[in-house]
């Protein structure tokens, strides 16, 4: 379970999060919506441990552990996965080597047996098939020359192989056509289980047609200003974010 209490964070002198309260129980998918500049991406970066963000107050725990004190790699080992809004290109690093190194690093941190190259490829190919992705995705350099849709699919592939307990999807729908959106959504839905939870950050309602959330929260000016069921997303789509701050 992810529990965020009164979380405040800033970049330099600029306060972005101003007391976020949010609880995501295991097995649930929560959506965070909100206008540009509300702090959606900041929240995902603070939870995943990116440098340059200073937590100025409050707490965030996952399964009772204070995650804000952990390195990014320790958070990954604890089961947290961030699907990037803009996945990073790594020229010279093969995708298969990258994902296997990540998987084995996580396994090592958890005291599990590592996978050799053959066992990994078998697993990865099976996962590619599940996700209707081509095999050559593993042979290319990480995200280099990938289209926007391919980059997002690669994020989903990594997520499927790393099997996180908590996935944070930061505007994963941006730049996706309808086919890619479906593949990405199917990937997330395939992970649904009583042990899996997700925080889906999005600007638009259309992703939530495919990944149906248990709860929808509106983040505005660094605070959760409204929460509700999936119908809240539809209402926001119809009426926009105007006036949500005052609600």
């Amino acid at each position: 379970m992810l529990e965020i209490k009164n979380l405040s964070a800033s970049i330099g002198d600029k306060e972005i999060l101003r007391g976020v309260d949010l609880t995501v129980p295991d097995g649930e998918i929560h959506a965070i919506m909100g206008p540009n500049g509300a702090g959606k991406s900041t929240l995902s970066y603070v939870l995943s441990g990116r440098e340059g963000y200073e937590v100025t107050g409050g707490s965030a725990t996952y399964n009772g552990e204070n995650i804000l004190a952990l390195t990014p790699e320790a958070r990954a080992a604890a089961g947290i996965f961030l699907a990037f809004q803009y996945p990073v290109e790594l020229p010279g690093v093969g995708n298969a080597n990258f994902i296997r190194t990540a998987l084995n690093a996580v396994k090592r941190a958890r005291g599990e047996a590592e996978l050799d190259a053959v066992a990994f490829l078998k697993l990865a190919r099976a996962e590619l098939k599940n996700l209707s992705m081509p095999d050559d995705m593993l042979k290319r350099n990480v995200n280099v020359g990938f289209s926007g849709g391919e980059k997002k699919r690669n994020e989903v592939l990594q997520m499927a192989l790393l099997r996180p307990g908590l996935a944070i999807l930061d505007e994963t729908d941006s730049g996706l056509d309808i086919d890619a959106l479906k593949i990405v959504s199917d990937g997330v839905n395939a992970l649904r289980s009583p042990k899996f939870s997700a925080l889906v950050i999005t600007h638009y309602q259309r992703l939530l047609d495919h990944i149906v959330p248990d709860r929808v929260h509106v983040l505005s000016a660094g605070r959760i200003v409204r929460s509700g069921g999936p119908e809240l997303a539809l209402e926001l789509e119809a009426h926009g974010y105007v006036g949500q701050e005052a609600a």
Partner: peptide, 8 residues
């Protein structure tokens, strides 16, 4: 950060 976020 990208690599570390994946557990490396």
């Amino acid at each position: 950060f990208y690599l570390r976020s994946r557990g490396i």
